[in-house]
Design a protein around this nucleic acid. Structure first.
Lengths: 408, 408
DNA sequence: ATTCTTTTATAATTTTTTTTAAAAGTATTC
DNA sequence: GAATACTTTTAAAAAAAATTATAAAAGAAT
């Protein structure tokens, strides 16, 4: 059987029996992917297929090389079970995390291990065929470097900032040079299926699959870097809205008397809270002689960027902390709107600012206490991401596996 | 077979074969309920069960009296199909729409027809056992009046304002005298299963099942009466949040310099837009001698309430229209936040103010044009409800059927 | 009137499950 | 520490369920 069999859904002109068998295989693979090694008995309970049938399906998958016999496991008072697990080298997934100035690449095996990881700095995102070409080149060279045959790659998962229509595989904000849609163009050139989504949503998927949102049903993930992104898990599912435009948290109204936003509106959250503004404010203050650790950066001719600011905060820089606190007041205001509307069980802060840990969590919590109806907000936990810079990349893997292993 | 068989999910100690059969029956009933009469061939396609099996299942359901043979239907170029439909008198659903001052009761048959309907005015909602008793009395007298045996009632669906935890059957804001939870208390006393939800969410379910949200996946339903309620259909499912507190649209921040809200916060949307405020403002203006049709109400010693205001607007009363316009500006601001966050395909305005039709739609549209990013808002249709005062009641029926006929 | 479609019924086959039994342990008792 | 009773897992046989294939029925189109 071709490894791709999992991918082929809604097959037409194929007997129903074949589809049903595929679905059965998928259920088993799905359970092993999400829950790790399991015995026949455990699989039976999980997938609701009878034991003789599960045994025979597992046999099949073993003979295809997709499953491995892990030997006998611990008993709970009887015969020891035979454990089976996914052959993590049976297939691979390519993860591509596109940022404005950096490109992160990874190859995952079926145990979610990164068997390859590369961070390419100064890889500036621009809407040109040159960019597309070098993106493809980078991926191609990674593939040939690994020496894994193309058929072994289940899909390429891509995370990209801006407006994205995941269903159609379109990136509206960036790389619109890809005429037939970014997903299709890249897919055609690489000869591998491509799955696209917005960075904040990909992060949310990463958190749901591998981070703090595991087993949670209603979780909001903030991507706090230079801008503000929002990915939402609602009723256990990623919410993208009609066109994939959901999550424009940065452009909700916070201050009607505020500043003009680049989007044309007045008083958007992003005019008050964002990494960009934080850096800008601090740079201006440094120029005016504000005492802060970051002043040294300037003296040493190092760039004051968001990373530097967070570093200073972690070193206890009073001024930078104060600046962050001010932003968090506004951010909290915005979050309260979200919480009132969506009643999530958890809010996860990710992105570069998440490195600041309690220095973000505490002031945002304070702001929420002030502005939120406590009956609602007390049900919501506010935390920083564990995955941090890896969450989007991990999310691409989660997105691919979610898509491939989805039932129905 | 007992009619209640559809209701019994997650049965324990029952053979898998029985559960599977139940699921098959449910699929067929579900299709017939949602799509009306169908031939065996149509059912086969819809439920993905083979034709001989569907035929035998339909036979079974006919023998139980749940399905009726509707005779032959139109042909599309071959033998005419035998059509089957639900026996609409096989079971009934009781709908209860609790409002602050009015109680709406209905009994639905399986074709969604209201075979009984009663509007009880001046039935003021208060947190007392007296209220509970008279509620039960009203329902009981309706049942006995109809002369339908209790077993024939599939469930009671209830719509109630305020914070509701539908999963647990709890009403937090109103009727907290019901100690074990409103749903259980009423269920025990009536001897019929009770399904509870918040009024705005029930309306959303009504719109999704019977109104303008049919076939839409992401729809927001506003309940504009004295307060502001919000029910959300996201990814095709009702969104309730972790505790059922989602939808507190009235308490999102709109004006940081604004007035104190009764919730303790400053500048909530409800301090700027709500039927209550509208009426209050108009009353004050009338007292000050403002020329308006509503001034006559006062002279005639009639009460100026929301209904009167809407009537005046529909008669073209310039002042009332102007007051509504002002509110709609704020409402539009709030809606923009929703649209930016959730990217819905439609926003439906319901509640008493929905009777104003274009007098609400037009100013809100204008406000949205002003405050929203057009790329996103242009994907969202803004309409008034068709169901109007019936939407919550219809929603209770939809809620019951959704729950009973849900797969898995 | 004949051919073609579509629907329904029946028979044959396949798939899946239930049942039963065997295998391989653990826990307990003497 | 061996013997026995009890559990859990797996395998095989028997039974049931569901599907596919086929045929018949009923009407439409030509």
């Amino acid at each position: 059987m071709r490894p791709q069999f999992l991918y082929e859904k809604n097959l037409q002109g194929v007997a129903n029996s074949v589809k049903r068998k595929q679905e059965q295989y998928r259920k088993i693979v799905r359970h092993l992917y999400y829950n790790g090694a399991a015995s026949i008995a455990e699989i039976v309970k999980a997938v609701k297929i009878s034991q003789p049938l599960v045994a025979s399906l597992v046999d099949d998958l073993m003979s295809y090389g997709m499953l491995l016999d892990k030997g006998v496991g611990e008993s709970i008072g009887g015969r020891r079970p035979n454990l089976f697990c996914l052959n993590s080298e049976y297939q691979y997934v390519i993860g591509v995390d596109i940022n404005l100035h950096t490109l992160n690449l990874a190859v995952f095996d079926l145990s979610n291990k990164q068997i390859f990881r590369e961070e390419i700095k100064y890889f500036d995102l621009e809407n040109s065929n040159d960019y597309l070409n070098s993106l493809v080149d980078k991926i191609e060279s990674m593939i040939s470097q690994l020496g894994i045959s193309r058929e072994k790659f289940l899909a390429v998962g891509i995370s990209i900032p801006g407006l994205v229509d995941a269903k159609q595989g379109l990136s509206h904000t960036h790389l619109s040079v890809a005429e037939n849609g970014l997903a299709r163009v890249l897919g055609d050139r690489l000869g591998i299926n491509v799955l696209l989504d917005n960075d904040a949503r990909t992060m949310a998927l990463g958190e749901k699959a591998f981070g703090k949102a595991i087993d949670k049903e209603n979780v909001l993930c903030l991507n706090l870097s230079n801008g503000i992104g929002l990915g939402m898990i609602l009723n256990g599912e990623l919410h993208s809205g009609k066109n994939g435009f959901a999550g424009e948290f940065g452009h909700i109204l916070i201050d009607p008397e505020g500043k003009l936003c680049y989007c044309g509106k007045i008083g958007c959250l992003e005019t008050l809270t964002s990494g960009k503004i934080l850096v800008k404010n601090i740079r201006e203050a440094v120029d005016k002689g504000q005492p802060t650790l970051l002043a040294n950066y300037k003296k040493e001719n190092k760039k004051i960027d968001l990373r530097a600011v967070v570093e200073a905060i972690l070193q206890g820089d009073q001024f930078a902390i104060d600046q962050l606190n001010q932003m968090c007041e506004y951010l909290g205001k915005g979050l309260v709107t979200l919480i009132h509307l969506l009643n999530p069980e958890m809010v996860i802060i990710g992105g570069k600012i998440a490195h600041a840990g309690k220095f973000v969590i505490d002031p945002v919590t304070m702001s929420m206490n002030k502005y939120a109806m406590s009956r609602i907000s007390s049900e919501t936990e506010l935390v920083c991401s564990d995955l941090l810079d890896d969450s989007a990349l991990m999310g691409t893997m989660a997105n691919v596996m979610r898509s491939v292993l989805s039932l129905d």
